[in-house]
């Protein structure tokens, strides 16, 4: 069943707009960033909307203050700006203050990874997962399609505390054509595999699916897991989902080896005594000014489908070589 993809932000904002009709505590704050659906929010609920201007530090502070007065706040801006321009405001007035006060502030960052393809490294965002992950009390959501993005609404409203929702700026093909996954669980197993499982988040789930398809044609059935919650996923369920694999491949549109999804999974596998080898695919940590399509850029930095396929095939060869060695050792 095919389904027309929407921009993630419009899908989520549509849900927020509906929620605002019956929930008088919802407040929407933007740092001069828009969307067609935002026009409806602005027009229909002017008393619960504010545009702070190009001022992300103030966006966070205003949102914290509104939340202290009992509002459930959605704060909306471009991903690198809403995470990095105002990092200390997030740390002190959201993550830290949440230790002492009941807050509900949901940061919506649009433009995960390379989704602003030709705008260059200021507008691209390869650090946000790491930076938000390091803050206690901060939840992180990273949906792979608009269905999952829209389904985050309930958790945003019901669960208190600060949250970061990283959205792709481009409409992505619909993964959840049959409806949203179990949002409480925090991850979704798309497919079970034999030796290899891909753990991907956001846009990279689509890359993972494409590579898995190529591998399946070559006889290797790969498992695929969508990690859309990078903080409060069901850990016991994830340990079960990952058990039995020889290789866990993390795939993220963020710097590799810098504390993102790869670090999350490495720590997780150690804590849960999972024996699998790990292959961590992420953006080679460097800032670049290259232009091209998103796929061109992905191949340049080592996260395109061709690069992922190459890395997985190499890893499988290593696994087979060492398994061979092991058999030889046993036969001696």
């Amino acid at each position: 069943m095919s389904m027309k993809p929407l921009a993630m932000r419009d899908a989520l904002l549509e849900r927020i707009w509906h929620e605002m009709a019956t929930n008088p505590d919802i407040f929407f704050a933007s740092a001069d960033f828009g969307s067609p659906v935002l026009d409806k929010i602005r027009a229909d609920y002017p008393a619960r909307f504010v545009n702070v201007g190009i001022a992300e530090q103030n966006l966070i502070n205003i949102s914290a203050g509104l939340s202290l007065e009992g509002y459930t706040v959605f704060a909306y801006a471009i991903a690198p700006f809403i995470t990095m321009r105002c990092y200390e405001q997030i740390r002190v007035n959201l993550a830290l203050l949440a230790e002492a006060r009941q807050l509900n502030v949901n940061l919506i960052g649009v433009g995960a990874g390379y989704s602003y393809v030709v705008s260059g490294p200021t507008h691209q965002c390869y650090e946000d997962i790491t930076l938000m992950r390091v803050l206690p009390n901060m939840q992180i959501f990273s949906p792979a399609d608009h269905v999952c993005a829209a389904a985050l609404l309930e958790r945003c409203v019901v669960e208190t505390g600060p949250k970061y929702i990283r959205l792709d700026a481009q409409p992505l093909p619909v993964i959840y054509t049959g409806g949203a996954p179990d949002m409480e669980r925090g991850f979704h197993v798309h497919r079970h595999g034999a030796r290899v499982v891909f753990v991907a988040t956001g846009y990279m789930l689509h890359t993972g699916i494409a590579v898995a398809e190529q591998l399946r044609e070559a006889g290797e059935v790969v498992g695929i897991i969508d990690m859309f919650d990078l903080a409060r996923f069901n850990a016991d369920a994830l340990a079960v989902a990952l058990s039995g694999y020889d290789i866990i491949v993390t795939i993220e549109e963020g710097f590799s080896g810098r504390g993102g999804l790869d670090a999350l999974l490495r720590t997780f596998t150690v804590r849960h005594c999972l024996k699998a080898r790990m292959l961590c695919i992420g953006v080679e940590p460097a800032y670049r000014f290259d232009l091209g399509t998103r796929l061109d850029l992905h191949e340049l930095v080592g996260i395109g489908p061709a690069a992922v396929l190459r890395a997985v095939v190499e890893m499988l060869a290593t696994l087979e070589a060492s398994a061979g060695t092991k058999r030889e050792v046993e036969s001696l």
Binding site: A47, N58, I60, N61, G65, L66, L68, E88, V92, L96
Partner: peptide
């Protein structure tokens, strides 16, 4: 005490959000 103010320059912004919230309510 209402908020965290070990790091300077945060109070006025948060207070402004509180003032906006009070007005809107």
């Amino acid at each position: 005490y209402e908020t965290l103010n070990g790091s300077l320059g945060h109070g006025l912004g948060v207070a402004t959000g509180i003032a906006l919230g009070l007005k809107r309510r």
